[in-house]
Design a protein around this nucleic acid. Structure first.
Lengths: 212, 212, 212, 212
DNA sequence: ATTTAAGCGAGACGGTACGTCTGGTCTTTAT
DNA sequence: ATAAAGACCAGACGTACCGTCTCGCTTAAAT
């Protein structure tokens, strides 16, 4: 199992861990932009050169620190009900965003706005993982006949996560597990008044009077 | 032409316009963080001191430049159908976000992540205006009996704008007027499969009387 | 008298003086290579940016500090005897080299060994001034018929200064005003034993039996 | 002859040679300060640790490389004339300084200006050897009655070498074998105009009892 | 033949300085 | 009074090099 680890002195796992830990510590206290690489180095008891040897810039150190800080795996609830699954997952997500990690998450989105490459990396290393989980839940719902199979799962996920992240980033409305539940419930139910026939383009096919 | 007003000089309006114009020009080309205050001053043919005389920092100059650049008023469609109203409005929004102004908008969200005061200002000076329009549309829908009056309009707006802004900021999915229409349609209809009775919390509230 | 000094804030003479003073202070205590630009900035109570605004690099700051530290003008003795003139001048030079300035002088020679452009600048801004003085003394000696007019004054100066600088840089022998006198005396007199006819290439022409 | 050489693996003579060769190669191309120890190690195909195992620092590696690069022994000419001997030797010296080795020599002087210990070592390991040769030549001249025995040979050597090294380091004047000859000739002859009696301070005491 | 002590290449590490850059402030002169 | 010009401070950035250290392999003397 021990892969032969090359010849020279090995990369100090201690140093790496120390860097990530220090970075996380600082990120939990102030925004990425105000965390200097010097501060990280100093707090980690490490030379700046060591940091820049392994990471091309401060932002990517932060990303690794962030990812390393996420211990819990993304749980994929399986309650038997898609709506409940999503509710649980979105609530977990909200809990995450309300933790210090949420602030850090926002920093990455922010950073991404002036660094497309980083944004792309962030999507791949963080977001897509989460979306894969959601996709599975949606698929289950489709198979159980609970949800409308014609709907693009990507849209579904954005309808679900979008509002939460919007509130996280903009801070214009409350963010809580209760709100998360409301979002999912509203989403599943739709906005239309029950018993009200839609007037729009989709006559008949999507009419409400369920309860056959 | 020069009416002699008082003692000093009064180029201030000219300078202000020039600053805003230069700022907007630069913001359309690169992210806020990479637009230096020096560059603005130089392009505006203005001294940096003049900028900082009227604005407390670069970000607020940018905000003013952005707001000044928004010529069109927020239209409040009134087609007689809430769904169509929202579709139109969201499409207009997407069009806006796809324009150079969209990128600038993102910069402000980004900036807000390390500057809560600015974020709050941004909400007030930009977002809330738009939300007021949406609130009116929703109210009309409620009055016409088209939409469910129990739903918190705030949630509705986040459900609508959230996904769009999410995609704008993260860039993980397409952003187009078509997508906007799909979002609204899906939102109105809900995620549930037509003819499928919800099993979840809304039947006898939260019990699962599964399996008939 | 007051030349109109441009528009903006003027270059702070205070800052400049402070930088040069701080630099000189540090140079008198440790070699140029170990004087950091940060240290200069700190001691001068000045931002590093200010330093690099006016000087392209640390070395040139040091050069200016050095030159500014040389208050005394290069005196051109005029005793009526070329030998005495040179003795006095070389003694003054040695005194200079024995002062803290001497160490700094060496640093520049050292620096010049890996930076030809700097070396060239150093020659122009420091050495040539001194040599001009010596050239005048030589010329006087020629006119008075004391010294051999065929000798290239450049060689003379190198014969005079060379040994002193050699000892300064290499430290293999004593450096004192007495030594300076000896150098000049030996140089004027020549190495040959009095009364000994040269055997070499220049028979006749330069033979000693003066006073025919 | 072969002393029992300890227990472990022996010092690799190959590595040492390779290091010195690589160092010399690099020193011939750029100044010591710009030759990094990494570059030496890499070019020598050797680990940096190996270098620092045997030498305390880069400068001393360079010194050894330099000394090893000097194949030719210091020749002590013996033409029968002190002046000619010195001329030949100084010309050889100039030739040496004009070779790539000359530049390297300067580097050591430079280095010595911020490292007195090294300077002292350099004197011992390089300069004194050469001076010993010159001292012998001077002694011969004295014995032959060619040169003035009262003159301190140390001064003589500095009068000879000083100007050459001065020009080498400062680059203000030409350096050639011709110049070397001129230096020696001028030195032997003295600066005074033939037939001109010195007027200065040394009338009785240091005058040449010219012994017509 | 086996042990064992040293040498070695690879290369990571801490420290320190470099020169650059930007944000926001301050000073001087011109209008 | 207010503008333009532009110098100024603070402090972060990422790079470079030095000399040290650690690892695992190799060599050769000593057992």
């Amino acid at each position: 199992m021990e892969e032969p680890r090359g010849r020279g002195r090995h990369r100090s796992l201690e140093a790496e861990a120390s860097i990530l830990k220090a970075t996380l510590y600082l990120l939990e206290r102030k925004p990425l932009r105000k965390v200097s690489s010097d501060a990280i180095a100093q707090r980690a008891g490490v030379s700046k050169a060591t940091i820049y040897k392994w990471w091309p810039n401060k932002t990517l150190v932060a990303l690794d620190a962030f990812l390393a800080g996420i211990t819990e795996r993304v749980a994929i609830p399986d309650t038997g009900s898609a709506e409940q699954d999503f509710t649980q997952q979105l609530q977990a997500l909200v809990a995450f965003y309300l933790s210090p990690m949420g602030k850090i998450f926002s920093q990455f989105i922010a950073e991404g706005q002036s660094d497309p490459d980083f944004l792309s990396l962030f999507r791949e290393r963080f977001l897509y993982t989460r979306r894969d989980a959601a996709r599975i839940m949606w698929q289950r719902g489709v198979e159980r006949g609970e949800v409308c199979p014609e709907i693009d799962p990507e849209i579904v996920m954005d309808l679900m996560y979008g509002p939460v992240i919007f509130r996280l980033l903009v801070g214009h409305g409350p963010l809580s597990e209760e709100e998360a539940a409301t979002i999912v419930r509203t989403l599943f139910k739709g906005l239309r008044k029950s018993g009200h026939n839609q007037l729009g383009e989709t006559l008949g096919e999507a009419s409400e009077p369920q309860r056959s």
